[in-house]
Design a protein around this nucleic acid. Structure first.
Lengths: 179, 179
DNA sequence: ACGAGCATGTAAGACGTTACATGATTAG
DNA sequence: CTAATCATGTAACGTCTTACATGCTCGT
C-alpha cells in the first residue's frame, strides 16, 4: 500500500469519529494518534483535497470566515473500510539507540550506559503518561463503542514502555561484563 | 542530525568492524543490523562515494576485476566517533496495526482479532529467532570485545517480541468486552 | 490595538526506494 | 556453457518535512 493511502486512512479514520477543520485534524492526528502515527502538515492538506475531489469527504462551512469543516461521506466510509482491510505495510525500523549500542566498542562503555539510562528515564516517563492516559480515556469515553479499541492502543504503549525498562536493566548488566 | 549522517554512521560503523565491498556492506546492513536498521541500496553507493571524497574511507583493490574493498581511515574513525556521539534523532513512529485497531469499530471486532492473532504469531516467530540468534552469536563471537554490545541489541529484540506477545493477550481480552 | 492561537495553503528541497542497465566470476 | 551470485552504479519517481506566506478572531 502506497504511503499516500496510509495518510488517507488516518485522515478518513479521524474524520469518521468527528467532522473537523484541517487544522483540528492536524492536532487530532498529533495529539490522539501521536503515540503510534504521524502525518506532517504538508501531507494533510493535499490529501484532504484529493479526498474531496474523489467525493470521500465533504467540505462544509467552517467555524470562521474562510475556514472549512470536513466531514466523511458514505463513499468515504466505504473507502476507509477498504483501506483498513488492506494488508499492513511495515516501514523499515530505524533505531538510533540500538545502532549506537551495536557500535558500542567505538562509542565507549560510559557513553553507552548514559544512553541506556536516558532511554530508561524516557520509558519511565512514557509509562506514567500511558497509565494516566488510560485512566483519563476510560473515564471520559466510558460507554463509547470506540473505548475498547482505543484501550488496546494504549495498552500497546504501556507494554512497550515496560519492556523498554526491563531491557535497559538487562542491557546495563550485559555491559558490566564489558568495561 | 540529517538522515544522510545516519547513513554515514551505519556505513562507517560497519566498515569499522571489517573492510568490505559495497555489495557486502549492503548485505551486512541488511543481515546484521536489519533488526533495527535499514539502508536501501540506492543510499549506500552515493554515501560511500561521499565518504571517499571526504577521506573517511579508502578504496582498495577488491576481490575481483572492477570491484573495490572499502576500509575506514583514521579520520573516518574520528568521524564515526563524532556521529555516534550526536544526539539520537527519533523518526516518528508509524504503526499500521495500532492505527487499524484504533479505528476498530469501523474495521469490526472479528478482523481486529485476526490482526492481533497475526501479530502474535509474528512475534512468537520473532522471539524464537532472537533466541537462536543470541545462542549463535554468543558462541561465534565468544571473547570478542563487541559481544556484550551486540548482545544488548539482541536483548532489545527479545524484550520487544515478548512484550508484543503479552500485549496481544491483553488486547484480545479487551476486545472480548467489545463484540 | 496587539499578541496568541486558529486557519489555509504552497513550494523547495531533502530523503528514500525501486527499477533498470551492465558486466565478472564461479559452481554445477 | 549457463545459471546463480557477486558487483557497481544511475535515473526516475514518490514521499515527507520545513519554511514560508497570508489572513482571521478573540481575549486583554
Amino acid at each position: 500500500m502506497a504511503r499516500r493511502s496510509q495518510t488517507e486512512m488516518a485522515v478518513l479514520g479521524a474524520l469518521s469519529m468527528q467532522p473537523m477543520t484541517a487544522y483540528a485534524l492536524r492536532e487530532a492526528i498529533r495529539d490522539v494518534l501521536g503515540n503510534f502515527w504521524s502525518e506532517s502538515f504538508g501531507q494533510i492538506y493535499p490529501t484532504l483535497q484529493a479526498l474531496e475531489r474523489q467525493g470521500h469527504v465533504e467540505r462544509r462551512e467552517g467555524p470562521r470566515a474562510g475556514s472549512s469543516t470536513f466531514a466523511i461521506t458514505a463513499p468515504g466510509t466505504a473507502r476507509l473500510h477498504d483501506l483498513l482491510n488492506e494488508p499492513i505495510t511495515t516501514t523499515p525500523s530505524r533505531n538510533g539507540l540500538l545502532l549506537r549500542l551495536f557500535f558500542g566498542r567505538t562509542l565507549g562503555p560510559a557513553r553507552c550506559r548514559e544512553l541506556i539510562l536516558q532511554a530508561r528515564a524516557d520509558a519511565e516517563r512514557s509509562l506514567a503518561d500511558y497509565e494516566e492516559l488510560a485512566r483519563t480515556v476510560a473515564a471520559e469515553d466510558a460507554g463509547s463503542p470506540d473505548l475498547p479499541y482505543i484501550m488496546t492502543t494504549i495498552s500497546a504503549g504501556r507494554h512497550n514502555a515496560q519492556s523498554l525498562i526491563a531491557w535497559t536493566d538487562e542491557a546495563l548488566t550485559l555491559l558490566d561484563g564489558a568495561s
